[in-house]
Design a protein around this nucleic acid. Sequence first.
DNA 1: AATGAATGAGCCTTCATTCAT
DNA 2: GATGAATGAAGGCTCATTCAT
Lengths: 230, 230, 230, 230
Amino acid sequence: MVVQSLVETTSAAIQEHDAQDAAPSPRRRRKDARPSELTAAALDLFVEKGFAATRLDDVAARAGVSKGTLYLYFDSKEALFKAVIEEGIVPALAAAEQQLAGYQGTSAGLLQALLNGWWQQIGNTHLGGVVKLIISESRNFPDAAQYYHDHVIVRGRSLLRAALNRGIATGEFREMNVESCIDVAIAPLLMLVIWRYSLCFCGNDIDPAEFLRTHVDLLVNGLQRKETNQ
Amino acid sequence: MVVQSLVETTSAAIQEHDAQDAAPSPRRRRKDARPSELTAAALDLFVEKGFAATRLDDVAARAGVSKGTLYLYFDSKEALFKAVIEEGIVPALAAAEQQLAGYQGTSAGLLQALLNGWWQQIGNTHLGGVVKLIISESRNFPDAAQYYHDHVIVRGRSLLRAALNRGIATGEFREMNVESCIDVAIAPLLMLVIWRYSLCFCGNDIDPAEFLRTHVDLLVNGLQRKETNQ
Amino acid sequence: MVVQSLVETTSAAIQEHDAQDAAPSPRRRRKDARPSELTAAALDLFVEKGFAATRLDDVAARAGVSKGTLYLYFDSKEALFKAVIEEGIVPALAAAEQQLAGYQGTSAGLLQALLNGWWQQIGNTHLGGVVKLIISESRNFPDAAQYYHDHVIVRGRSLLRAALNRGIATGEFREMNVESCIDVAIAPLLMLVIWRYSLCFCGNDIDPAEFLRTHVDLLVNGLQRKETNQ
Amino acid sequence: MVVQSLVETTSAAIQEHDAQDAAPSPRRRRKDARPSELTAAALDLFVEKGFAATRLDDVAARAGVSKGTLYLYFDSKEALFKAVIEEGIVPALAAAEQQLAGYQGTSAGLLQALLNGWWQQIGNTHLGGVVKLIISESRNFPDAAQYYHDHVIVRGRSLLRAALNRGIATGEFREMNVESCIDVAIAPLLMLVIWRYSLCFCGNDIDPAEFLRTHVDLLVNGLQRKETNQ
DNA sequence: AATGAATGAGCCTTCATTCAT
DNA sequence: GATGAATGAAGGCTCATTCAT
């Protein structure tokens, strides 16, 4: 039910977004732009403080509107939360589709492209906050988490699975438990995103580029067949 | 200041813990035992719902005491939170110390021992919840996060650094950016813990043992020198 | 002060009403006609939900206009309320004046005519809602209640007083406390109106015609001199 | 469903009331007395301002407690409203039962006793406010109104029906539409109560005793057989 | 004249905290 | 030491009112 609501609202959001480009009356444009301004402000605060600790006054203030204006666009605080998730999912899905385009080259290169692409288009953007938000609030909003899992994570895993299977088929990679490899390959990316929104403020600077390079290096090397001592 | 408080309180907690072992009069033991029942209940709920969304009534109910009793042991909800963190840190530190004991064997084996040990003694216990809690609330409790970082993470990284450096020194591992390797080696472990407290409820079962085996396998293989083409 | 305002506004309303009849240009008529559509919608909702529980959005929606339009005609929600009362008072006064016309016949017949006339022209129309409204809100709008009392109730009582006194003078009715008889004669009428807007929805159907017939029957019989036992 | 809730809660309230007499610890007595203190304060304000216009702050202040205390005893403002109704119904039912006790004398005397009794035990007490409240809010709380109708009004009508039928059977009263007579006999009583809580503040003093005497006088005379022209 | 987006004061409700028992 | 009734500040939400279009 909630999943259905998430889907429908998402479609509506997309259409509304298109309409925005067409009718640029100043008043009208403002009204169309409002929801995404509000969800952007909400995302920042939800990620920083968590859902329960975020006051709608603060969301409104950050968006430069009054508290009541929030309720012109969202029925409740919870509806705002779900809208934030939905807005974070649409671009993630789009990015995933884009990655599906045929790739020519080694499987190692494909793997690297997928991981780097995710980082560039999701992890390193404000959409990364959605990831941390989903994780932090998954127990309070199980259906939002479920939806995110079913549509974003499952799809991402499919991409990696295809790459890994291709590498194994061509003999570029050794035989391994592919599902576990997928999880192990994804984990550092998610952790990097989470890190950016949590302990990164404790002074331990992780250079994302270097982290990614090392991760891909270790992963690809770890997957490749070792010409062991024969 | 709070860090100081955390240190002091931690020391006090340790001493109290010692005192507890020394004077097990039924009356006294009861008094000392109570707080850990309370923090255990609080940890569960903090991890599940987050700090702000957790009601002290629920903590008290789960611990089987009245709400007022909480205030006999903790000055405030925030003090309870810090006590939860502290109680999660003490065993983590102890576990880390234990790992420092001399290890005989390959560096790959040492690495595997460290990672598995952390999982067995921290990640796979209720202490793993502390990790998720720290990450979720790091922005609301920066000094708790800082303290955790400085004492637990830094120490854990030292252990890994030593193992990696030893492997490189002996030629078992190839030359790499050690700091990045540490981060990449830790990330899947943290992610596994986080997963257990969040999206694992979305149906995607990750088998921790298999996940760990794959991670160590890929990591060790990735680190090892390729016996290429001789 | 407010009473004064009610008087003034009422007079103005009457004049405006007259002006309306005189200059029925479509433009002007539209403008003048609007408020009565608005007050009619407001009356319905005020009677049903009470003043405080009625939202102006709902009033506007029922009248088929936007919320802002209400403020083109009424300064505030309270002003709208008073306009509703005033609109209900003007016809009531007119109806009362009409009853003053000379009546030929028995005093019992006059009494019956007055009570039936009030029911036909006030109680049984949408003006009956005003009665319930005045009663429900009399403590929140004491001056509106006062005005209603002074102009409508007092005048109505005068009509009844005249009828009763005439009956007593002619010997048709026995000697009684006329003021109390007035109250007792009016009460069932008011109660009938109130019933129509409240508990009538609980299933106990009161047939107004039968109720009135019985009331007048009992009243006239009760007033008439009994030819007791001589 | 709500009716059921009304019944259950009423029973509980009665039991609690009994318990109060048994355990007069000062603290405990206070706690047991609280709910009725709160409903008493709420009744006053609900009757005066209506449900929607009454602020819980005012209810709490009148009861001499803080706003939060209300929520220790009632789940919501609406639950408080229903409790007020329930507390008004219990004594009304008890009073009705009491009237059922055998009466010796003329039917006219019985009728008079019933009407005066209702006034003394309900109408003229603070329970009269419940009547006005039910009527004012019947559309907003239809099930509360229904319950009041089914249990209080229906029962009251039964008492009057018995008296009227007895009088007709003995020939003391003439043949009439009994159901209509019941309504007409009750209406002035209800109106008197309503008057006390509304327009009575407009200066038209109705002396309840005189009003009742006149009502009974007219009613009984109206019902009695005329000894015409023999 | 008409609209409806925006505002913000106010109210219901929650919950951390206190304290009398 | 333990309880739980009481408190009141804080925050989610509503809605009368305003005003730019």
